[in-house]
């Protein structure tokens, strides 16, 4: 007989716990106040507006560095999340496993398309290629209107390697 499907609450709890552990470990993500919405395996990063994020007090506009950091955080977390997903679903994810180690940014290029307005911003990353060592990610950021991006970026990342001393 086929195994009965897992109750939906159990699945949701497992996924949400893994995500909040992944995100909660990084002080800089907490400092900027970035959170992640999850629908299935798709993540949307949210940057709630705060005065400390302002780079141009006259306009006012969000600091270009904050925009870049927000897109980079979205890329790194989306990448980690994608690598972690299979282990998470097969139940092979152990508590403090190496799976929570972050990819390292090799390079990151941001297009600033509009100034960041003093309101919440959102971002979603698409993993264009994910190999054993390198990954390429494209990420889009918007505010009120999904079609009107305020910034987009492409980055290359070095994936965490399995520890050689692993027994």
């Amino acid at each position: 007989m086929r195994k009965p499907p897992e109750p939906v609450q159990v699945i949701k709890q497992r996924r949400d716990e893994a995500l909040s552990k992944l995100v909660g470990r990084v002080p800089y993500i907490q400092y900027l106040g970035v959170t992640f919405d999850r629908r299935g395996d798709e993540l949307t990063a949210v940057l709630p507006y705060a005065v400390k994020l302002i780079g141009n007090p006259l306009l006012p506009a969000i600091h270009g560095g904050v925009t870049s950091a927000f897109l980079e955080i979205t890329s790194v977390i989306s990448l980690s999340w994608a690598t972690l997903w299979d282990d998470l679903e097969s139940g092979e994810l152990d508590g403090d496993s190496t799976a929570f180690r972050m990819p390292k940014t090799i390079d990151f290029t941001v297009d600033y398309l509009r100034s960041g307005l003093p309101r919440d911003a959102y971002a979603r990353a698409r993993i264009t290629r994910s190999g054993r060592r390198y990954a390429s990610v494209h990420v889009e950021g918007w505010q009120d209107n999904r079609e009107k991006l305020f910034a987009q970026a492409t980055g290359h990342f070095l994936m965490p390697q399995p520890r050689s001393d692993k027994s």
Partner: peptide
């Protein structure tokens, strides 16, 4: 950015 090593996040460097 990396809680294991205490290395600063790339985003802070870009700011």
């Amino acid at each position: 950015g990396d809680p294991e090593t205490g290395v600063v996040h790339g985003g802070a460097v870009s700011a």
